[in-house]
Simulated scan of single mutants.
Amino acid sequence: MPPMPPPPPTFGFAPPPHGRKAKRGDVRAAILAILAEGPHNGYRIIQEIGERSHGAWRPSPGAVYPALQQLSEEELVQQIGEGRKSRFELTETGHSYVTEHAEEVDAPWEAMIPQVDEEVTELFGLAQQTTAALMQVAQTGSPAQVAKAKQILTDSRRSLYLLLAEGDEG
């Protein structure tokens, strides 16, 4: 498996979603890809998908556990242990399936990773700096300074929406 690309910088904010939505079969493919690397419990599978998609895709337990059950019924996955200590691993048939269907199970989370260009990255950086300044005003500012900061933020929000309403001139 090729190394994961570095996560796009978020500066503490969720980047705008530019990846695609998960489609039918993506959870199944992700589970198989992760279990091909070794046994994991269901919670860790969910965490791995989230980490590998840089937070853009976090399937719910309601999606992962039924997929694990289906994979188990297909004899591609088996459960080791019971209760909280249970883990899942690929069966011999599962390993063969992953090998034969390598394209299908090759990092389905990569399509969900948001693509953030440099301008947007800088925009989020400015937002982070603005938040830091806002925290300083909130913590140490006088009541008059807090009131003025609220007005600045209100005006800024209004200006951003007006910018969008003007449309793209380029």
Rank of each mutant, 00 (worst) to 15 (best):
A63Q: 08
Q47E: 15
G55E: 12
Q78K: 11
S96M: 04
A144C: 00
L68A: 06
V77D: 07
Y161V: 10
F13W: 13
V146R: 07
M1T: 15
P114F: 10
T99V: 03
A127Q: 14
D155V: 05
A147V: 14
E92M: 06
V137D: 15
D168P: 00
S86V: 06
Q47F: 09
R24S: 15
P143L: 11
L164E: 14
D26G: 08
S86W: 01
E73C: 11
N41S: 09
E89V: 06
P114N: 13
A165G: 07
G167A: 08
P108R: 07
Q69I: 07
L160A: 14
L160D: 08
P114V: 12
E37M: 08
A111V: 02
R20K: 05
G12H: 04
Y97C: 02
G170Y: 05
P143T: 11
M135C: 08
E118Y: 09
D168Y: 06
D106T: 04
Q70R: 12
E103S: 10
V105R: 07
A138T: 11
G55F: 12
M4C: 11
P7S: 11
E122D: 09
V146W: 03
R52K: 15
K23D: 15
Y97R: 00
Q69C: 09
G50I: 09
P143D: 15
E74T: 06
S53C: 12
E92V: 09
P8I: 01
A56H: 05
G42D: 15
